[in-house]
Every structure is written in structure tokens, then in C-alpha cells.
Computed example of a mutant assay.
Amino acid sequence: MSKPAIAFIGLGNMGGPMAANLVSAGYTVHGFDVTDIAREKAAEAGVTLHDSAADAAKDAQIVVTMLPNGRLVRNVLEECATGEGKLYVDSSTIGVGEAKENAEFLNSTGSRYIDAPVSGGVAGAAAGTLAFMVGGADADLAEAKDILDVMGRSTTHCGPVGAGAAAKLCNNMILGVQQIAIAEGLVLGQRLGLDPQAFFDVVSNSTGSCWALTTNCPAPGVLGKAPSDNNFEPGFATNLIVKDLGLAMSEVEATGTEARLGELASEIYSKLADDGLGAKDFSVVYEQLRERKA
């Protein structure tokens, strides 16, 4: 059976490696991005570039979007939807209501939609080990599963459209809290005379172990390959965790859920962004904590 042609809209830090993995697996990938550096990297990986999202999607059976926010996703869907029955797979992190509205819009044009956000960061995108959390119909997930398997190591069907977005917002709220907790533990440990490497060796093998430490350790010189080892170049930018936590807090309010740690994390990262650190990896919270005393 021939492989479907793929359009990939959004070829940045996450989308670029994901599209490259599809090319390596033998898929024809048509791509579009607004930035020159993303386009150059994608072209080097074998992606066929186009001058607009609509042009990229024209001859594709499946359209994947990986974009910074829900407004951009909707703009692309409105530009690309032609009523030809394409399947749209959105791997952006957007609101639950936005995902449902996207599905309603595309269904009205004769196309189909699943929300399939990811966890695993830039390293996971490059390695093809992302975790996909999917909301949508069984048949639509079945159609997308082969390409999801190329880009990720696991795919979980969370429920109808919107369930994938819900899972991602919950996950990122947890992640935001964990990254702060790891930073606080590291700073406390150092002030007690504990070397960051010793902290890592203990906690990574103990009950405090988590991705925020083992993959994204905020102390420079421990992993050698984390954003902290490269002047906190993202990874996962502070501006993006601010956006994701804002979406999560909207759902917290809408559902009447108590989430005091999530709310505090949202405030802490928003302050980082206000202090001019929005373009840095969100683990830069460690640097801020090191400089302060209560």
C-alpha cells in the first residue's frame, strides 16, 4: 500500500524534526513555515517546501499542524480546508474548546480532525520518541496511526475530540510545577553544600525523579545536553509554558477545580516572561531562584 502524502505546517523546533522523521520513513512531505531558518532546515531534511500553507496542503491526504497557539491553528485550517475529505492532525497545544471548534469547522467542510498534542520536547521530536495524546474518532486515529508511530513511541486514544488537548494541559500543568520543584530542590541543596551532580545522582534514582530532572536538569554541567548547558536556549520556551498554563488555568476556572500549585506555577513563569526571559527555556527558573533569597 502506498504511503499518503503529508503536509506539515509549522517546521520549527518541534515540527521540523517531526517532519524530518516522516521523510526518513519514506513519506512525501510538503511543508510550510514563515521563518527562513525553519524552511532551510526542513529543505535539508528532504521536505518539499511551498509558499503557503494552502499550497502545501493541496496534494496531501493528511495535514499535520504544529503551531504556537490556537489562533494560528485556526487560521491555517481556514486557509487549507477545501472540502476534499482530508484528515487534519493538530499537534499544537491549544484549548479544549478550540479543538472542538476546529473539528466542527472542518466537519462542515467535509474534512476530519483529531487533536494530537505531544509530550517529549525537542529531544523526543528529534528521536521520534514523542508521546501522542489523541482526541477523535476511532477511524480517524486509525488513519493517522502509522505516521504517529513514526514520530512517537506511544499513542494514547484519550477520547473524543478535545480529550487530547485536555490531557496535554493537565500534563503541562504538572510539568510546570515539577520544573519549579526541581529548581527549588537544587538551589536548597547547593546552599546546604550539596553538589548539583550529587543531587542529580540521588534524586534521579529516588522518588523525586522526573523528566524535569532527568532530561531537562536546570543545573548546567550535569547532563551536558540540557538547555541549561546551552545558555537555556529552548527546548520549551518560557513563553510557551506561560501560554499553556494560561489555557490550563482557564479550564481550572471553568470546571471549578482547585489547583493552587498550578496557579502558583502560572504566576512564577509569567513573572519570568515579564522579566525578559520568555525566549529562554522554562528551566531558567533555576537561575532566578539562585539569585534570590527569601
Results as ranks from 00 to 15, higher is better:
residue 271 K to V: 08
residue 262 G to A: 07
residue 271 K to M: 13
residue 240 L to A: 05
residue 262 G to N: 12
residue 250 S to M: 15
residue 265 A to C: 02
residue 274 D to Q: 05
residue 238 T to L: 04
residue 241 I to D: 00
residue 264 L to H: 08
residue 265 A to I: 01
residue 278 G to D: 03
residue 253 E to Y: 12
residue 232 F to V: 14
residue 241 I to A: 04
residue 253 E to A: 12
residue 275 D to N: 03
residue 275 D to L: 14
residue 251 E to G: 03
residue 276 G to W: 14
residue 269 Y to M: 11
residue 277 L to A: 09
residue 264 L to C: 12
residue 264 L to M: 10
residue 243 K to I: 00
residue 267 E to V: 14
residue 241 I to S: 10
residue 261 L to E: 07
residue 238 T to H: 00
residue 257 T to Q: 15
residue 256 G to H: 15
residue 262 G to K: 08
residue 235 G to M: 14
residue 251 E to D: 03
residue 232 F to S: 10
residue 241 I to N: 01
residue 262 G to W: 07
residue 245 L to G: 03
residue 235 G to N: 13
residue 268 I to A: 06
residue 245 L to V: 03
residue 268 I to S: 01
residue 272 L to S: 03
residue 232 F to Y: 14
residue 247 L to A: 05
residue 269 Y to N: 11
residue 269 Y to F: 14
residue 276 G to N: 09
residue 231 N to K: 09
residue 256 G to I: 13
residue 242 V to W: 01
residue 248 A to E: 01
residue 270 S to R: 09
residue 276 G to Y: 11
residue 230 N to S: 13
residue 262 G to I: 06
residue 253 E to K: 05
residue 236 F to A: 10
residue 257 T to A: 15
residue 238 T to F: 07
residue 267 E to F: 06
residue 270 S to V: 05
residue 237 A to Y: 11
residue 270 S to C: 00
residue 235 G to W: 10
residue 251 E to P: 02
residue 250 S to Y: 10
